[in-house]
Design a protein around this nucleic acid. Structure first.
Length: 907
RNA sequence: GGGCGCGUAGCUCAGUGGGAGAGCACUACGUUGACAUCGUAGGGGUCGCUGGUUCAAUCCCAGCCGCGCCCACCA
């Protein structure tokens, strides 16, 4: 016998262990079956499970578990990401507690420390995913720095370099002066800050007293100015073009150039050009062949160079700003200082303002790689199905499709991707430099040496590029590197392309776009057919949760308190396409209650022997109530399955919630009680079997979202011959109901009858409650004005009606209405409750008045509609007919209530 | 500046071209042998505003107001 409540923590641990022990998560168990593959978005090894992970992985698990139950060869490929900068920061912080910096250890020993740290603490998140119930194939767990994945990285780098899609170039990059590394455009966050706009007067060369005013938000960079630009068509400056002005403080003469970049509307119309410290100015500088003077060092402090007066040497950029502004002021060259809000670039990891800095870095020519990735999604709208394999594997779609536009816009404006990082933890770039600076890009040092020997005619010592690759470089290969690429493994052939990628929108550019480019380039096939983009789980203020903000909510706490199933169900019910998830604990508690409700329904079934019967065919049911259950169960199953098919996770969850609680528990089990205790043997047997059958369907349908409690109940309720629910079966085949019932059979009619009974009972209960009839009191029910159908139903379902409405009797009214009876109208009959002794006449009068008032509103509205000739002429006939039917019913109901009111008044 | 999205019950949110929904909260009643992590019933909304299309708009279109996010090099 089941306990009254479920001990979630116990069954969770037990079932997870059992599933693993039986290899239930392993791919490849059904070599004949169609594969179904999802690769996990690899969490950072430094990470711990946050709500975003919980949501992301719950959704993946739902799809994988459903596919597994459907009998497909399900592979959920797990693993973790080495997360270069994040991990290095974590280990550096730990070193700092020992008073050490990474340079004290040296590169090799530092990297050893990182591996050591990974071995000790890197598994945290994997353990947490298991607590959540994630059914990943852990035997295939990968890490982006594994040997195999590292080989894939080197191979891709070398290949792309050979194809001139990777190159080394001196360009402006985003330099993080705290972390001392370049970062990509995507790792730069723009934040609005309140700053100032300084207007500085640059003396025009050879013309005493004439100045060219420029406005700037960054006066400290003026020492690197190499020109002032004005618009070629700006009449104010026409005579100055080609002349020079004198850079204050520095004293250098710099040219005044005409360039369309200068906007006459902005600032003073003349703009200082600092090509080494501003992306726009860099372009202007290139166009005009201007020198590029870098005045900052790696810490964003002023360099000790000739162009920078000695008194500024070594000053931090902001100290330098103050000093320079003060000097300009003293020189009388500061024309204005205004408050000004502007967007400043911040490093997303370090949180400091990054500097555009001119340096040598490695870049991917993303523009070329983007072409196929653009076409792939552009074709996703075409509806012709996938008979053509060539095409099928070159297309993918976003769900919801709104993300397509975002993806395309970014792809079409894609910039070169800076992939080199000046840190130590990561994939070191496979490039070696010869003494003459020649670069050898090879997968191994041996190959580089060999080529160097050939080139120089003798063995020559090479120096390896110290930089490592952007972490997202290896992530971009994840869908195929985890399957063994570049080896031609059976797994690669079988599971690539994957079916679905489930991810948050925050990494569409970082990750999805790059996987698409790399997958298409190296395998000629998209890495996934569908990208489901879910919302972010935000904190109560609607803020994105992130480690650096420290506003992360720990899902493990909720799991401890309410169970993993409840958390999973909550996230699923909240996973509406295109809307953020704001989590509330009350909601989790509510779905914990749902799990308990399910548990107790199962307990009831168990107590009453309502257990699954092998080989039971619900199509053989005779009892209308059981047929009604079968129909409703199948409707719910179909709806839930369809919802998953279309990634409407919330609809899937809600459908099953309402069916389980609102239909199965609230009505069916109540209907079943009298049949189980009072019915004849055949009735009892059928009801037990039908209830057991329906509960089994519920457990199966809920298993993807609530795996633990459903497996526990599945095993508790029957001898399954060793079969685990995790292995299915899934109760729906495609769009087909498992036991399709002919719509024109008696079934449909009987289903409608039970619905009528439900309405009748509900109405009697409402009247009783409203008139304060004691809940325990049994009162008689008389049906007045009953049509034939209503009389038949009353007779047929007499037992159910009297039990559930707590009636002493339920008969058609013969003769006249007893004095002081309460009346209510429903379709096909008037309900009469002769309970004069217990009612309050005033209350009853007001109740009837209220009911009539409600009907009047409806009747009025319907009448207006029906008397509109245009409505009758243009609306669909079935709509008109339905409206007329309603009108008739309401009219009848109103007449009956009015009569009742009159009778009451006569008392 | 460009793009996307959101404004529906006290709160968090579903939903639909033809009678406004859920969960929680709230009110009343309830020891009915599955379940008080429960049951029965109830109160509560001019579906942001203004126009338009339509026989019919909360839903489609336009504009406006408010809010959020993403992208962008604007001094």
């Amino acid at each position: 016998m089941l306990d009254k409540t479920c001990s979630f923590s116990e069954i969770e641990a037990a079932w997870y262990a059992r599933w693993q022990a039986e290899g239930a998560f392993a791919a490849g168990r059904h070599p004949q079956a169609q594969p179904y593959t999802i690769v996990i978005p690899p969490p950072n090894v430094t990470g711990s499970l946050h709500m975003g992970h919980a949501l992301n992985n719950t959704l993946q698990d739902i799809l994988i578990r459903r596919a597994r139950m459907q009998g497909r060869d399900a592979l959920w490929q797990p693993g973790t990401d080495h997360a270069g900068i994040a991990t290095q920061m974590v280990v550096e912080r730990r070193l700092a507690t020992e008073g050490l910096g990474r340079r004290d250890l040296g590169r090799e020993r530092f990297i050893e420390r990182v591996w050591q740290w990974k071995a000790e603490s890197g598994g945290t998140i994997v353990g947490q995913l298991k607590r959540l119930g994630a059914s990943c194939d852990w035997s295939r767990e990968r890490f982006t720095m594994d040997d195999g994945l590292s080989a894939a990285v080197r191979k891709v780098f070398v290949e792309l370099h050979r194809q001139e899609l990777i190159y080394r170039d001196k360009r402006l990059v985003n330099w993080d002066p705290l972390l001392h590394t370049a970062i990509s455009d995507l790792e730069v966050e723009s934040r609005e800050v309140r700053g100032k706009l300084w207007t500085i007067r640059y003396p025009v060369e050879g013309e005493q007293g004439r100045f060219l005013a420029v406005a700037t938000t960054r006066p400290e960079t003026m020492l690197g100015d190499t020109a002032v630009a004005v618009h070629p068509d700006d009449p104010r400056f026409a005579d100055l073009i080609g002349r020079r002005c004198l850079l204050p403080i520095a004293g250098r003469a710099i040219p005044i150039v005409a360039d369309p970049h200068a906007d006459p509307e902005k600032g003073t119309g003349a703009v200082k050009i600092t090509p080494a410290h501003d992306f726009n100015d860099f372009e202007v500088g290139r166009r005009h062949g201007l020198p590029m003077i870098n005045v900052l060092d790696g810490n964003a402090a002023m360099l000790a160079i000739a162009e920078v007066p000695e008194r500024f040497h070594g000053l931090d950029r902001y100290e330098a700003r103050d000093a320079i502004v003060a000097e300009l002021q003293a020189l009388g060259l500061l024309a204005a200082v205004e408050d000004h809000t502007l967007m400043m670039p911040y490093g997303d990891r370090s949180g400091v303002v990054v500097e555009p800095w001119l340096m040598d870095q490695w870049f991917v020519d993303a523009k070329k790689l983007a072409n196929d990735a653009i076409e792939a999604v552009e074709e996703s709208d075409t509806e012709e199905e996938d008979d053509d394999d060539e095409k099928k594997y070159k297309r993918f779609k976003f769900v919801p499709s709104t993300w397509k536009k975002t993806y395309l816009m970014w792809m079409q404006n894609i910039q070169p991707w800076c992939i080199s990082r000046q840190i130590w933890w990561g994939h070191q770039i496979p490039a070696w430099y010869g003494p003459d600076g020649y670069v050898f890009v090879k997968e191994t040092e041996e190959e580089a040496n060999a080529e160097a020997a050939e080139r120089y005619g003798h063995p020559t010592e090479l120096e390896r590029d110290p930089d490592v690759l952007d972490t997202w470089f290896s992530s971009a290969l994840w869908p195929f590197s985890t399957l063994g690429w570049p080896e031609k493994t059976p797994e690669l052939a079988r599971y690539y392309p994957t079916d679905v990628l489930i991810t948050g929108f925050d990494i569409i550019f970082f990750w999805v776009a790059r996987m698409m480019m790399m997958g298409l380039h190296f395998l000629g096939k998209v890495p996934f057919r569908t990208v489901y983009v879910h919302a972010l789980v935000r904190d109560e203020k609607g803020q994105k949760m992130s480690k650096s903000k420290g506003n992360v909510i720990d899902p493990l706490q909720l799991i401890d308190k309410y169970g993993a199933d409840a958390l999973r169900f909550t996230l699923t019910a909240l996973a509406v396409q295109g809307r953020d998830v704001k989590l509330s604990e009350a909601r989790v508690a509510g779905y914990r209650n749902f799990a308990t409700k399910l548990w107790n329904a199962a307990r009831f079934c168990q107590m009453n022997g309502a257990l699954p019967v092998a080989g039971f065919d619900p199509g053989t049911c005779q009892e209308p109530v059981n047929r009604w259950l079968v129909l409703r169960t199948q409707e719910a199953a179909l709806k839930a399955n369809q919802a998953l098919e279309h990634f409407h996770f919330n609809l899937y969850a809600e459908t099953l919630y309402h069916f389980t609680w609102g239909t199965f528990c609230d009505w069916y089990l109540e209907f079943a009680k009298p049949m189980l205790t009072g019915g004849d043997a055949a009735q009892q047997a059928e009801t037990r079997a039908a209830a057991g059958w329906a509960l089994d369907r519920i457990l199966a349908l809920l298993h993807p979202v609530m795996p633990f409690v459903t497996e526990e109940l599945y095993q508790a309720l029957g001898d399954r011959g060793g079969r685990l629910l995790i292995n299915g079966p899934w109760p729906v085949e495609g769009d087909e109901l498992e036991y399709p019932v002919q719509a024109d059979s008696d079934w449909k009619r009987q289903g409608a009858e039970i619905d009528w009974v439900v309405r009748l009972i509900t109405q009697v209960r409402a009247v009783r409650a409203e008139l304060n009839v004691p809940p325990g009191a049994r009162v008689p029910l008389l049906l007045k004005d009953a049509d034939d159908a209503a009389r038949a139903r009353l007779a047929r379902y007499h037992g159910l009606i009297t039990t559930l409405a707590r009636l002493s009797s339920a008969e058609p009214l013969i003769g006249s209405i007893p004095a002081g009876a309460v009346e209510d109208a429903m379709d096909g009959a008037t309900l009469v409750l002769p309970i004069a002794d217990v009612i309050d006449i005033a209350a009853e009068r007001s109740r009837l008045g209220k009911e009539i008032g409600k009907l009047d509103t409806e009747i009025e509205r319907t009448h207006r509609k029906l008397s509109n000739p245009n409505f009758r002429a243009k609306a669909a006939p079935e709509v008109v007919e339905a409206e007329e039917e309603r009108w008739r019913q309401w009219g009848r109901a109103r007449r009956r209530l009015e009569q009742a009111l009159r009778r009451l008044a006569a008392l």
